[in-house]
Write a protein that binds this DNA or RNA. Structure first.
Lengths: 344, 344
DNA sequence: ATGCTTGCCCGAAACGTTTCGGATTGGCAA
DNA sequence: TTGCCAATCCGAAACGTTTCGGGCAAGCAT
């Protein structure tokens, strides 16, 4: 292991100056900086992390706390989350650790313990609830964190999110513009912030397009096939006021909807139109449906990089404005939408 | 953050003595040690990891390198692996980091890079192949590592494993003792060390029980339902020499076998007996099969603790004998085994 | 000449811990 | 008394880095 001292001796410089040269400080002459960098590269100099952390007072470690071991089918997604965050933090020369709470533990106790041990610089929070207690807890203690998602339109903490209100508005408008007047939204788990945002967007767009609120149906539940299936069956139980179009919270729900519609003898898009939001989940790709789905699309896997950067920035104490990002989202029109049958 | 200095000042002792008291050194009087520990507890003293690591020269970080993002259905298992290792290393005050290689990278290059950066004390290696190149690579460079599994009966590196040879012998004997003379073993992926060990155990037990080797069938493939299904179909293609009993490498394979047998109109255990090895995978529990399966059982989830301890020991340079462990395994006899139909 | 920048550099301290070598007791045997 | 040993303690150095407060020269204006 080459150290700053090794470099400084070989170069006839002080340790101070070598350090400053490598770290891009101003008062180092260009020629010296060149020499230093060249030798550093030649000797494969790598700054000692422990020493650097000792003086900075930071541990260089950030964490993700899960309330329990994820169960199928979400577990497949979690490994992508963990892998993605891990990779991006490692690129930022930080360590990312996963902490899974015991069944019996209160999740806030886990945070308390980790903070107290002083070994963690900050946290990533995923799957935020509306008024998430974790946010309040960490904010109270001035512990840096970043949210995947957010509470409200303009929060006072770092986050990465997509515009869920807009997502729902877009999907709703695609259907109303095709002539649909009775729409059911099969959404995610009640209490999740993004679920609430999408419901609001759905109702706002419907109102703006002149739909009565009693022409709207809204179902919440876990984002799995069976929820899509059951909610669909329920939506079509009373054929008098059955919807002519459906919105799925994600493509996994859409899968369940397809199953239910097939069982009910309804065809997509002739009898029922269907749109969904598409996170590009590997086990439910929107383009392999038959017919391929019209979706708003934003890759969940692109979240980890901005999340890592925002948390790193928060730990360094950068200003909030640079730590709040909103991911892109695009509408992909495919063959799952048609005018409602009455209008044909 | 309380430091050693804080403690020493309040106690009227030197920093040295406080450190020695806390770390259990000999030349500290019992009364002093008591006082020190009491105050340390009261002030929630936590030794600063970075400082400790700086003097020890260790980073306190160990890693797991995966060649690529795990795909279903194994991804569900991976989150348990990562979570389990993570938890146990954190208990040992070490950090565990996951590193997922890019598609294009050679896996050994990833190890090379991580070692060179000097930030990693050791590695966990899972799913070892026979003559695994990672083992050779790390051993050559004197980098500590621990294997989940092993190459041969008594390797010269730290490992945790179960006795796969014995597992296969036990399962085979259960069947031969019930009178079966034609047995098919639907095993895991060719090249895996444990798959080879089990095949050897299978053949050894069969030979010891006086079975001809042409009465044995052996299939390899990924440990998923479809492999169990296809291999079963193949095993029963020629009814003249069809097996009367099957051994499944794990319960996921057993699921596929059940599907195939049902399709072939064969009942368990009246027409075909079935035994399996049971890792207690959450998506395929041996006792909920119909009939419940006779299995050799050893919980995969109990591997993470010994793996973490062995690697920690290896990093500290402890002697090999304490770093090699073999997990327990028990036979659970249930209703999936009966005498072969000819014998009835 | 004097004072003031500006550019480049350095020594020393600091971060919190472990450890090496030695110091100070008191007790006990010679 | 002297010497020795064990028990208990301490100062100082070390780990590798960043950073604070300066120093020294050259250039410039006064």
């Amino acid at each position: 292991m080459t150290t700053l001292k090794d470099l400084s001796q070989q170069l006839g410089l002080s340790v101070t100056q070598v350090s400053r040269a490598l770290n891009g400080h101003a008062d180092v002459s260009e020629s010296t900086r060149e020499r230093v960098k060249a030798l550093a590269a030649e000797l494969h100099y790598q700054p000692n992390v422990s020493a650097r952390r000792l003086v900075s007072g930071k541990s260089g470690i950030v964490g993700l706390v899960l309330p329990h071991l994820p169960l199928p089918p979400e577990d497949g997604q979690f490994i992508r989350i963990v892998g993605g965050l891990s990779a991006h933090f490692s690129r930022l020369r930080m360590q990312f650790v996963l902490h899974i709470a015991e069944e019996s533990e209160d999740i806030l106790d886990v945070y308390r313990r980790l903070i107290q041990s002083g070994a963690i610089d900050g946290f990533v929070i995923i799957e935020p609830q509306v008024n998430d207690p974790r946010v309040a807890f960490l904010r109270d203690r001035d512990v840096p964190f970043v949210l995947h998602g957010r509470d409200c339109a303009t929060p006072d903490y770092p986050f990465f999110d997509i515009d869920n209100h807009a997502v729902a508005r877009t999907l709703t408008r695609v259907l109303t513009r095709a002539g649909h007047r009775r729409i059911a939204f099969i959404n995610g788990l009640d209490g999740r912030a993004y679920v609430a945002a999408r419901e609001a967007g759905f109702r706002a767009a419907a109102a703006a397009e002149g739909l009565q609120s009693d022409a709207l149906m809204h179902f919440t539940g876990e984002m799995v096939e069976s929820h899509g299936l059951l909610a669909t069956v329920e939506a079509f139980r009373d054929s008098a006021c059955a919807p002519t179009a459906l919105i799925a919270g994600n493509t996994r729900i859409a899968k369940g909807i397809f199953l239910a519609l097939a069982a009910l003898g309804l065809r997509v898009p002739q009898d029922v139109s269907l749109v969904a939001h598409d996170d590009i989940l590997h086990d439910a790709l929107s383009h392999v449906f038959d017919p391929p789905l019209t979706v708003t699309q934003s890759a969940l896997d692109l979240s980890w990089e901005p999340l890592a950067h925002c948390l790193a920035g928060a730990v360094e104490g950068r200003s909030l404005s640079s730590l709040q990002r909103i991911g892109a989202c695009r509408l992909i029109q495919r063959a799952s939408v048609a005018p409602p049958p009455e209008a044909a």
